[in-house]
Computed example of a mutant assay.
Amino acid sequence: MPEPMPLQGKIALVTGASRGIGRATAVALSEAGAHVLIHYGRSAREAESLVAEIKAKGGRADAVSADLATPDGPASLAQQVRSLASDRLDVLVLNAGVSKAARIPDYTAEDLDLLFATNVRGPFLLVQQLLPILGDGSNVTVITSIGARSVVGQPGVDNPSILAYASTKGALETLVRNWAAILGPGGIRVNAVAPGVIDTDMSNFTKTEAGREIALGMQALKRIGKPEDVADVVAFLASDGARWITGASIPVDGGTKL
């Protein structure tokens, strides 16, 4: 017998889906039966390649593009999604984001503006714009970070830190709780998934032996996390198996800093 497809007939949007955790999540949702909308900012070739890959396996996918760091980017994306999804979006995965590591004296106002515009304002406005097509049974999953609740790296004024990035993820976790409370009476679930160190293009930490050793030293499970480790949890949260979970932040970090 073929395996059941828990998201058969559902439509999903994954932001920042051209690579890394977003790409793995789009694949996982497609394999669960969803028609996946692959959002990208600048990586058109990678996004179209993923669409082709999903279609080659018999799945359904379309690429959609918007710069979510701009004030009108979320509205532009929502308009594209509404034209493809008609009057219903079942799964929304807010994954797109940017990161930066620097010493406190080296951060600029422009750095902070870009981090908060992309990582916080973009998701906020996108949920606002998509509310008309989110309904009873829809769910939203926000990719946050272990950095929202734990200090990552070696604290020190002279050491590079991701504290500004981490603060955007803390803001997202606050939004998740508020969205869950506000949208719950309408049957919409909202949760966060908080990865630890994951081996992606964006993670410089995993590119050096020293970084990998630090990560493994923090973790109970002694391997470096993969995008698929996160994607499988997102796919579960999107399914009816997670029907009684909302307002939660689920760590997917191999048991980091236990």
Rank of each mutant, 00 (worst) to 15 (best):
R103Y: 08
Q154F: 10
P6D: 05
V127K: 06
D158C: 02
I245H: 11
T15K: 11
L84I: 13
G217D: 02
A28T: 04
G156N: 02
L183R: 03
P160A: 03
L37D: 10
A242C: 03
D232G: 05
A102F: 12
A63P: 12
T25S: 12
I162D: 01
A96V: 08
G58W: 06
E46L: 12
S239F: 04
V157G: 14
P2A: 15
Y107E: 15
D253E: 12
P71M: 09
Q80R: 14
D158L: 06
A61Y: 10
L175P: 07
E3L: 14
A12Q: 14
A69E: 11
L92K: 10
R121N: 14
T15H: 13
A52C: 01
R23G: 00
V36H: 14
I104S: 07
K55I: 05
R60E: 15
L114C: 00
P195G: 04
V190W: 04
A47H: 08
E3R: 13
A17I: 11
L216M: 08
V233F: 01
K169I: 00
A52N: 08
A171F: 07
R223Y: 03
A56H: 02
E31Q: 15
P123W: 08
V193D: 02
M202D: 12
D158Q: 12
L114I: 06
S161V: 11
V98I: 10
G20H: 09
L163G: 09
A192W: 04
L29G: 13
A181C: 00
D67A: 05
A171W: 02
S99V: 10
R42C: 04
Y107K: 09
A180H: 03
P160N: 01
D199K: 12
